[in-house]
Design a protein around this nucleic acid. Structure first.
Lengths: 113, 113
DNA sequence: CAAATATACATAAGTTTATTATGTATTTGT
DNA sequence: ACAAATACATAATAAACTTATGTATATTTG
């Protein structure tokens, strides 16, 4: 089952910031693959959504980039800036709070570990 | 704390369908107030989002309406259709699954009862 | 070894969904 | 009386994503 796209809306930046916090340094394509693996294919980030989002986070000063060449192919690594680390924490905390609220509101039976 | 709007995006229809499942019959303004109360003000539905969403759900055949007059003021009650009941369950289940995935992906420490 | 698939980036056009603003009108509280 | 709350609705704008397209290199497979 792949989640309906509307469900994932608004969580993309949170996911990016969290992954970069855990992995120090990642490139775009790697992010899509990691998310796919970690969610058993349930969340599949599209490039059309991911790259503009990465650019926006960089423009906001939350990410820094390093470009490297693997053979002749370019690869652009993203890392959290100092501000990005703060924002990463805040975004995850906010989502966590939101999650609690939604569990209550929708009366969801949880089975989190 | 009020959640950043992007976080709530995509959850509006799920919230509406769930509330109508629990309450049989509600009108728009009542929905905004109920959500506000149940979430301690953290989710405040705007009318500009709610009414078009209700109209869309009705157009999709998920909701039925009855108009009543309270004094001279009109009040439009919404109820789930048969299809709406099915969709309500599915939406909540999907969202529940999504939350589980996000808890794992974001490594969130939960404190549900 | 040719073709298909995967890797890796990017952006533009279109759609969806919400925000903000505006409009109308009645009812209640002070 | 006046302000705030109740109750609906819609239009203009903005945000965020999907879909489509484009370019190019590297690897796998029949």
């Amino acid at each position: 089952m792949i989640y309906s796209s509307e469900l994932i809306k608004g969580t993309l930046k949170t996911i990016i910031l969290k992954l970069l916090k855990d992995n120090k340094r990642m490139y775009g394509y790697e992010i899509t693959q990691t998310v796919k693996e970690l969610t058993a294919g349930k969340i599949q980030l599209t490039e059309g959504a991911l790259y503009p989002s990465l650019h926006a986070l960089e423009a906001d000063g939350l990410l820094t980039t390093e470009t490297e060449y693997i053979g002749k192919r370019v690869r652009k690594y993203y890392s959290l800036s100092q501000q990005g680390k703060i924002e990463s924490k805040q975004k995850v905390n906010e989502f966590s709070d939101f999650l609690n609220t939604m569990v209550y509101l929708l009366d969801i039976k949880t089975n989190f570990a």
